[in-house]
Design a protein around this nucleic acid. Sequence first.
DNA 1: GTGTAAAATCGAATGGGTTCGAGATTAAGA
DNA 2: TCTTAATCTCGAACCCATTCGATTTTACAC
Lengths: 199, 199
Amino acid sequence: MAGIREQKKSETKRAILAAAVKLFAEKSFDKTSIEDIAKEAGIGKTTIYGYYNKKNEIFHDFCDEELDLAFSKLKPSDCDDRPLTEKLIDFFMIQFVFVTKNREFGRQMSREMVFPCEINDKAKIHDQRYFDILENYIAAAQNRGEVSTKHDHFNMSVHFFSLYLGLLAGWYTGYLESLSQVEETMRTLFTQVLKGIEK
Amino acid sequence: MAGIREQKKSETKRAILAAAVKLFAEKSFDKTSIEDIAKEAGIGKTTIYGYYNKKNEIFHDFCDEELDLAFSKLKPSDCDDRPLTEKLIDFFMIQFVFVTKNREFGRQMSREMVFPCEINDKAKIHDQRYFDILENYIAAAQNRGEVSTKHDHFNMSVHFFSLYLGLLAGWYTGYLESLSQVEETMRTLFTQVLKGIEK
DNA sequence: GTGTAAAATCGAATGGGTTCGAGATTAAGA
DNA sequence: TCTTAATCTCGAACCCATTCGATTTTACAC
C-alpha cells in the first residue's frame, strides 16, 4: 500500500535532491553544506541522513540527473553514415564540453565516476548505457565495412573510452588547455587506433 | 646563509612527512588525522599548516615518495629488445600492481594524480618522467623498425597511458577483478593500437 | 479508538580539518 | 647589545560532516 509514509518519504527525498541541485549549481559541491541543503529543503539537517548516508551520495544523484540531461542531447541517428571517427568525436566532444563546462563540477564528477568510493550498481547501469551507444556506432561501422570484425565490440568501446579518459586527465592536469586542442588530439588518437601504429 | 631558521624549517617539514608516511601506511589517509601526524612528529597540529595548506598536500608529497620508490624498480635496460608490447605490459603492470596493492590508497592517489585539485608543476615533472620512459621504449621500437615513424612519440605515449588509465578505471568501477584479467585486457588493447582496427 | 512497534525527525554532541590571534623565536641592522 | 620586523608555533575557536538519543509520527493489529 502506497501509504502516507511512502509518499512523504519520496517527496522528501525529491525535495532534498532539488535543493541540492539548486545549491550545487549556484555555489558548488564543496561550498554547499548539508545544513544549507536542509534549510533550502525546509527540514532539519539530520533528517537528510535518513535518505543519504554521505554527502557524496547526494552528489551522485545529482550527477545522475546531469548525465541524463547530457545523454538526452545525444541523438542516436542510425541513418548517420559518416565515418566512425567523426561520429565518435561528436559523441565524446559533447560529453567533454558538458563535463568540463564547470571545471570544478567536472573534476568532482569525474573523480566519482572513474574512481568511485565503492563499486556501485547504479554507476554500472550508466556505464552500460554509455557502452551500448559506442558498440552501436562500432557495429554500424563494421556493417559498412569500415572496421574489422576481428575485434570484440566491448574491447573497442573500452579503447575509445580510455582515450576519452586520457583527454579528460590531460585537461585536469593542464596539458590540454583549449577545446580545439582537445578535439585535435582526440582525432589524432582515434586515427591511431584505426590505422594502427605498427610497421 | 642557511641560518638556523632554514635548517629547522626543512627539518620540521621532513619530520611531518615522515610521520605522515608512517601513519598513512599503518592506517590510511582517511583514518590519520592531522592531530595524529602532529603528535607523531612532536609538534602542535596548527604548526603543520605552516608547511602544508591542506591535508591533501601531505598526501601529495607522500605519493611522490611512493612513486619514486615505484620508479626505482623500473630498470631502463636499453638492451632489452623484446617486442614493444611486452615491454609496455611489464612497465604498466608494475605500476598497476603497485598502485592497487592497497585499494584505498590507490584510489586516493589516482584521484589526486588524474584529477588534481589544481594544476601543479611538481605533478608535471612526474608525468614528464613517466612519458620520457614511454617515449624511450617507442623510439627503440621505431629504431628496430617495429613501429611506424609517422606518429609523434608524445601522442603515442599519451595513447598507451590512456589505455592504462582505462584499465585503472575498470578496476575501480568493478569491471576488472583480477590482475590476470587486467593483463589480458591490456594485451588486447595494446595489440589493437599496434595493428589498428581498421578494415 | 487504543496500544505498540517501526520509522522519521531533529536538537545536541562528536570529531576532524582549518583559521585566528597572541606569544615566542630568529634575522639583521644600529 | 638592543630593537624591530618577520617568521614560527600552538591553544582556542570555527565550520562542517556525521552520529546519538530522545521525541514524534505513522502503520497496523486488536
